[in-house]
Design a binder for these strands. Structure first.
Lengths: 218, 218
DNA sequence: CGCACGAAACGGACCGTTTCGTTTCGCCGA
DNA sequence: TCGGCGAAACGAAACGGTCCGTTTCGTGCG
């Protein structure tokens, strides 16, 4: 299910060039004019496309934003064998991706849009649920290694991590330095650590950690 | 400093009835039509007021929202002598206040508005900084009691708690049950606990806790 | 022919501002 | 103390402008 459900799919022969031009233009407008300047008319002007063409394929502004975001999305969910490094790495990757591509503004706009459109809110909720699953897996892996207590609610922990990320995005604090990130993750991690993995053992775990090639999710 | 800085202040004799009617109308419109239906024209119609009257006193939609919010704001920062209860109580109070008054929709709208208006973002940032101070004091009190480790960054912890609250507001999850709240707070708390206040000692602390009349901040 | 396209124009909503004529209120002089 | 005058805030209406989402047109391509 998605925001673009309204698109005609039977017998449609959409012009791919046109669609790309529109997505390119949407991205450009968002970067140059910001969310407040992001209108279908502006995108159409920029893409030298007609408004009906946009409306034919994207039922709403949010659907267009969503496609722009998904075209850009590329975030690491590292697997280093150590949860702290995994989480800090994930957040660093996410923040820099949000900062350095138009993906940050796009996602901010989507969240803002969701505040006035229940449909967008629903799609965004489902989407983030899927995202949380990836983070949850990082925590489950740590649980399997005995790094994290077995009775920990990994969904809730993933939610806490995501909350941290969202708030930093929304309040324009994506430039947070690694020290602060590590401190925040550290507080949380100590709170969910397995009882036999005290602060002494943690150093041992870190020494033991495998360096695994980061997995990149689409 | 505020969003309403533009108001005339010298020799102004604003009609208080009119101002109240406008704030009442703004609140009503927000509740009945939601953020997407919240327009200056709609508020003016509802208040049987002229648009210029609104623009005379509030330079922007956000300034009006901000005044509506501040008129409603009333959240407990409890002091029970136990940080977990303080934080859970604070969150419960905040969530129910957001849920049961128009204050939640108003704050959501403000956050959304901040995504497209840098001025609003700045004011909101300063406002939340002030709010965080209250939460920070709860943590500092716990630090003084020896409940929390001395080297903990209470600002960062307050930030984490606020992130949790914001995200729940923005994703329409203000109905979170106390168990989940307590679990989330618990994870964080164990992470920042003083070393000599292990999970065994925590129960003792809880038994020892003072029940203090909750302080209500404006 | 069928269909997607760009362009143009539609009615409608809201923006922020300007121009009206009216009402309210503070001040000041009688 | 009281009456009146002027300033200021008011509601209503209308302005030009932008954007909405839709409709209509002529064009071009398969």
């Amino acid at each position: 299910m998605g925001l673009d459900q309204g698109r005609r799919s039977i017998g449609a022969r959409r012009n791919p060039d046109s669609a790309d031009a529109i997505l390119d233009a949407a991205e450009a407008v968002l970067v140059e004019a910001g969310y407040s300047g992001f209108s279908i008319e502006a995108v159409a002007r920029r893409a030298r496309a007609g408004k009906p063409t946009i409306y034919r394929w994207w039922p709403s502004k949010a659907a267009l934003l969503f496609d722009v975001y998904q075209r850009l999305k590329r975030v690491d969910h590292p697997d280093t064998g150590n949860l702290e490094d995994d989480l800090v790495g994930f957040l660093k990757s996410l923040f820099s991706h949000w900062r350095e591509t138009s993906s940050g503004s796009t996602f901010r706009s989507l969240i803002a849009e969701a505040q006035s459109d229940a449909t967008v809110a629903a799609v965004l909720a489902e989407y983030t649920k899927g995202r949380h699953a990836h983070t949850g897996q990082m925590i489950e892996r740590a649980k399997a290694r005995g790094e994290v207590a077995a009775d920990i609610d990994s969904t809730l922990v993933a939610d806490l991590v995501a909350s941290f990320a969202w708030t930093h995005l929304l309040t324009n604090r994506l430039d947070e330095d690694e020290t602060t990130l590590r401190k925040a993750v550290g507080y949380l991690l100590k709170g969910i650590a397995a009882d036999d993995a005290g602060s002494v053992g943690a150093a041992a775990v870190r020494r033991r950690r495998r360096r695994v090639i980061a997995r990149t999710t689409r």
